[in-house]
Amino acid sequence: MAALVCTAESLADALRAAARVISEHRDELVRLDREIGDGDHGENMNRGFTAVVSKLDSSSPETPGAVLKLVASTLISTVGGAAGPLYGTAFLRAAAAVGDAAELDPPLVAKALQAALEGVVARGKASVGDKTMVDALTPAVAAAESVAVTDGDVASVLSAAAEAAEQGAESTVPLVARKGRASYLGERSAGHLDPGARSTALLLRTFAGAIRSGSPR
Protein backbone atom coordinates (compact mmCIF):
# COMPACT_ATOMS: atom_id res chain seq x y z
CA MET A 1 0.00 0.00 0.00
CA ALA A 2 1.33 3.36 -0.97
CA ALA A 3 2.02 5.99 1.63
CA LEU A 4 -0.75 8.58 1.68
CA VAL A 5 1.16 11.03 3.78
CA CYS A 6 4.71 11.66 4.89
CA THR A 7 5.69 11.88 8.55
CA ALA A 8 8.87 13.04 10.24
CA GLU A 9 9.90 9.42 10.52
CA SER A 10 9.29 8.47 6.93
CA LEU A 11 11.00 11.66 5.79
CA ALA A 12 14.04 10.85 7.95
CA ASP A 13 14.09 7.36 6.45
CA ALA A 14 13.95 8.85 2.98
CA LEU A 15 16.95 11.04 3.81
CA ARG A 16 18.92 8.04 5.08
CA ALA A 17 18.13 6.32 1.81
CA ALA A 18 19.27 9.44 -0.03
CA ALA A 19 22.58 9.34 1.81
CA ARG A 20 23.09 5.73 0.65
CA VAL A 21 22.24 6.59 -2.94
CA ILE A 22 24.49 9.65 -2.97
CA SER A 23 27.30 7.53 -1.60
CA GLU A 24 26.74 4.93 -4.34
CA HIS A 25 26.71 7.65 -7.00
CA ARG A 26 29.57 9.63 -5.53
CA ASP A 27 32.02 8.66 -8.26
CA GLU A 28 29.50 9.30 -11.01
CA LEU A 29 28.84 12.81 -9.69
CA VAL A 30 32.56 13.44 -9.37
CA ARG A 31 33.05 12.38 -12.97
CA LEU A 32 30.21 14.57 -14.26
CA ASP A 33 31.53 17.54 -12.33
CA ARG A 34 35.10 16.97 -13.53
CA GLU A 35 33.87 17.21 -17.10
CA ILE A 36 32.43 20.68 -16.78
CA GLY A 37 33.09 21.92 -13.25
CA ASP A 38 35.57 21.65 -10.44
CA GLY A 39 34.98 17.97 -9.73
CA ASP A 40 33.91 18.28 -6.13
CA HIS A 41 30.15 17.69 -6.37
CA GLY A 42 30.16 13.97 -5.54
CA GLU A 43 32.54 14.44 -2.65
CA ASN A 44 30.63 17.45 -1.30
CA MET A 45 27.21 15.80 -1.51
CA ASN A 46 28.51 12.62 0.07
CA ARG A 47 30.05 14.56 2.94
CA GLY A 48 26.85 16.55 3.43
CA PHE A 49 24.46 13.61 3.47
CA THR A 50 26.76 11.58 5.68
CA ALA A 51 26.58 14.47 8.12
CA VAL A 52 22.79 14.57 7.73
CA VAL A 53 22.56 10.91 8.77
CA SER A 54 24.64 11.45 11.87
CA LYS A 55 22.52 14.48 12.78
CA LEU A 56 19.36 12.42 12.37
CA ASP A 57 20.92 9.71 14.54
CA SER A 58 21.74 12.11 17.33
CA SER A 59 18.44 14.00 17.36
CA SER A 60 14.92 13.10 16.47
CA PRO A 61 13.08 16.06 14.98
CA GLU A 62 9.36 15.72 15.63
CA THR A 63 7.86 17.23 12.50
CA PRO A 64 8.70 16.95 8.81
CA GLY A 65 9.47 20.68 8.89
CA ALA A 66 12.01 20.17 11.66
CA VAL A 67 13.63 17.35 9.70
CA LEU A 68 13.92 19.58 6.63
CA LYS A 69 15.39 22.38 8.73
CA LEU A 70 17.98 20.07 10.25
CA VAL A 71 18.94 18.89 6.77
CA ALA A 72 19.23 22.49 5.58
CA SER A 73 21.54 23.66 8.32
CA THR A 74 23.68 20.53 8.02
CA LEU A 75 24.07 20.84 4.26
CA ILE A 76 24.84 24.55 4.46
CA SER A 77 27.65 24.00 6.94
CA THR A 78 29.12 20.81 5.48
CA VAL A 79 28.67 20.91 1.71
CA GLY A 80 31.16 23.16 -0.02
CA GLY A 81 30.79 24.66 -3.45
CA ALA A 82 27.52 25.87 -4.85
CA ALA A 83 25.61 22.77 -3.74
CA GLY A 84 25.77 23.70 -0.06
CA PRO A 85 24.02 27.04 -0.32
CA LEU A 86 21.67 25.82 -3.08
CA TYR A 87 20.48 22.60 -1.46
CA GLY A 88 20.60 24.27 1.94
CA THR A 89 18.32 27.03 0.74
CA ALA A 90 16.04 24.49 -0.97
CA PHE A 91 15.54 22.51 2.23
CA LEU A 92 15.23 25.66 4.32
CA ARG A 93 12.48 27.06 2.11
CA ALA A 94 10.74 23.69 2.03
CA ALA A 95 10.85 23.62 5.82
CA ALA A 96 9.26 27.07 5.99
CA ALA A 97 6.59 26.04 3.49
CA VAL A 98 5.40 23.06 5.54
CA GLY A 99 5.58 24.87 8.87
CA ASP A 100 4.89 22.66 11.87
CA ALA A 101 2.49 20.29 10.15
CA ALA A 102 2.68 16.81 11.70
CA GLU A 103 2.24 15.13 8.34
CA LEU A 104 2.75 16.13 4.74
CA ASP A 105 -0.14 15.46 2.41
CA PRO A 106 0.21 15.69 -1.38
CA PRO A 107 -0.57 19.43 -1.62
CA LEU A 108 1.97 20.19 1.13
CA VAL A 109 4.64 18.13 -0.61
CA ALA A 110 4.00 20.01 -3.85
CA LYS A 111 4.10 23.28 -1.94
CA ALA A 112 7.43 22.31 -0.34
CA LEU A 113 8.92 21.46 -3.72
CA GLN A 114 7.68 24.74 -5.15
CA ALA A 115 9.25 26.63 -2.25
CA ALA A 116 12.50 24.72 -2.71
CA LEU A 117 12.61 25.71 -6.37
CA GLU A 118 11.96 29.34 -5.54
CA GLY A 119 14.77 29.24 -3.01
CA VAL A 120 17.22 27.75 -5.48
CA VAL A 121 16.31 30.32 -8.10
CA ALA A 122 16.63 33.17 -5.60
CA ARG A 123 20.01 31.90 -4.40
CA GLY A 124 21.58 30.90 -7.69
CA LYS A 125 19.80 33.31 -10.06
CA ALA A 126 19.49 30.57 -12.66
CA SER A 127 16.63 30.06 -15.10
CA VAL A 128 15.47 27.03 -17.04
CA GLY A 129 17.98 26.36 -19.82
CA ASP A 130 21.03 27.58 -17.92
CA LYS A 131 22.19 23.97 -17.42
CA THR A 132 21.72 23.78 -13.67
CA MET A 133 19.64 21.91 -11.10
CA VAL A 134 16.82 24.34 -11.95
CA ASP A 135 16.39 22.38 -15.19
CA ALA A 136 15.54 19.28 -13.14
CA LEU A 137 13.62 20.94 -10.33
CA THR A 138 11.33 23.12 -12.43
CA PRO A 139 9.59 20.31 -14.34
CA ALA A 140 9.57 18.26 -11.12
CA VAL A 141 7.54 20.95 -9.37
CA ALA A 142 5.10 21.20 -12.27
CA ALA A 143 4.62 17.42 -12.31
CA ALA A 144 4.19 17.25 -8.54
CA GLU A 145 1.56 19.97 -8.60
CA SER A 146 -0.45 18.33 -11.35
CA VAL A 147 -0.53 15.02 -9.48
CA ALA A 148 -1.23 16.67 -6.14
CA VAL A 149 -4.39 18.37 -7.40
CA THR A 150 -5.78 15.08 -8.68
CA ASP A 151 -6.07 12.18 -6.29
CA GLY A 152 -2.43 11.23 -5.93
CA ASP A 153 -0.80 10.12 -2.71
CA VAL A 154 2.56 11.47 -1.57
CA ALA A 155 4.50 8.66 -3.20
CA SER A 156 2.77 9.30 -6.54
CA VAL A 157 3.51 13.01 -6.26
CA LEU A 158 7.18 12.29 -5.62
CA SER A 159 7.33 9.66 -8.38
CA ALA A 160 5.96 12.12 -10.89
CA ALA A 161 8.44 14.72 -9.67
CA ALA A 162 11.32 12.24 -9.98
CA GLU A 163 10.29 11.22 -13.48
CA ALA A 164 10.12 14.83 -14.63
CA ALA A 165 13.41 15.67 -12.88
CA GLU A 166 15.17 12.81 -14.68
CA GLN A 167 13.92 14.05 -18.01
CA GLY A 168 14.86 17.59 -17.05
CA ALA A 169 18.36 16.48 -16.08
CA GLU A 170 18.77 14.69 -19.41
CA SER A 171 17.68 17.87 -21.16
CA THR A 172 20.78 19.63 -19.81
CA VAL A 173 23.12 17.48 -21.93
CA PRO A 174 23.05 19.57 -25.12
CA LEU A 175 22.83 22.88 -23.28
CA VAL A 176 25.59 25.47 -23.03
CA ALA A 177 25.98 26.42 -19.38
CA ARG A 178 25.07 29.96 -18.42
CA LYS A 179 25.49 29.65 -14.66
CA GLY A 180 27.99 28.07 -12.34
CA ARG A 181 31.53 26.98 -12.92
CA ALA A 182 30.59 25.25 -16.18
CA SER A 183 29.63 28.61 -17.70
CA TYR A 184 33.32 29.48 -17.95
CA LEU A 185 33.65 26.69 -20.49
CA GLY A 186 31.14 28.27 -22.87
CA GLU A 187 30.39 26.02 -25.86
CA ARG A 188 32.58 23.27 -24.44
CA SER A 189 30.02 22.68 -21.68
CA ALA A 190 27.58 21.26 -24.25
CA GLY A 191 27.37 17.49 -24.51
CA HIS A 192 27.62 16.88 -20.76
CA LEU A 193 25.01 16.12 -18.13
CA ASP A 194 24.85 18.78 -15.44
CA PRO A 195 25.92 17.24 -12.12
CA GLY A 196 23.56 19.41 -10.05
CA ALA A 197 20.59 18.42 -12.19
CA ARG A 198 21.70 14.80 -11.88
CA SER A 199 21.89 14.90 -8.09
CA THR A 200 18.50 16.60 -7.90
CA ALA A 201 16.94 13.82 -9.95
CA LEU A 202 18.71 11.20 -7.85
CA LEU A 203 17.37 12.69 -4.63
CA LEU A 204 13.78 12.93 -5.85
CA ARG A 205 13.85 9.37 -7.21
CA THR A 206 15.17 8.14 -3.87
CA PHE A 207 12.57 10.07 -1.87
CA ALA A 208 9.81 8.64 -4.05
CA GLY A 209 11.04 5.08 -3.62
CA ALA A 210 11.60 5.41 0.11
CA ILE A 211 8.19 6.93 0.79
CA ARG A 212 6.46 4.31 -1.36
CA SER A 213 8.13 1.42 0.40
CA GLY A 214 7.93 3.08 3.80
CA SER A 215 5.69 1.91 6.59
CA PRO A 216 2.13 1.77 5.28
CA ARG A 217 -0.55 3.63 7.08
Binding site: G80, G81, A82, G84, P85, G88, R123, G124, G180, R181
Partner: peptide, 11 residues
Amino acid sequence: DLGSARMVADM
Protein backbone atom coordinates in the same frame (compact mmCIF):
# COMPACT_ATOMS: atom_id res chain seq x y z
CA ASP B 1 35.85 35.52 -6.05
CA LEU B 2 33.63 33.03 -7.89
CA GLY B 3 29.96 32.02 -8.04
CA SER B 4 29.45 29.80 -5.03
CA ALA B 5 31.45 32.19 -2.87
CA ARG B 6 28.70 34.71 -3.54
CA MET B 7 26.00 32.28 -2.45
CA VAL B 8 27.83 31.37 0.72
CA ALA B 9 28.42 35.04 1.44
CA ASP B 10 24.75 35.85 0.80
CA MET B 11 23.60 33.15 3.20
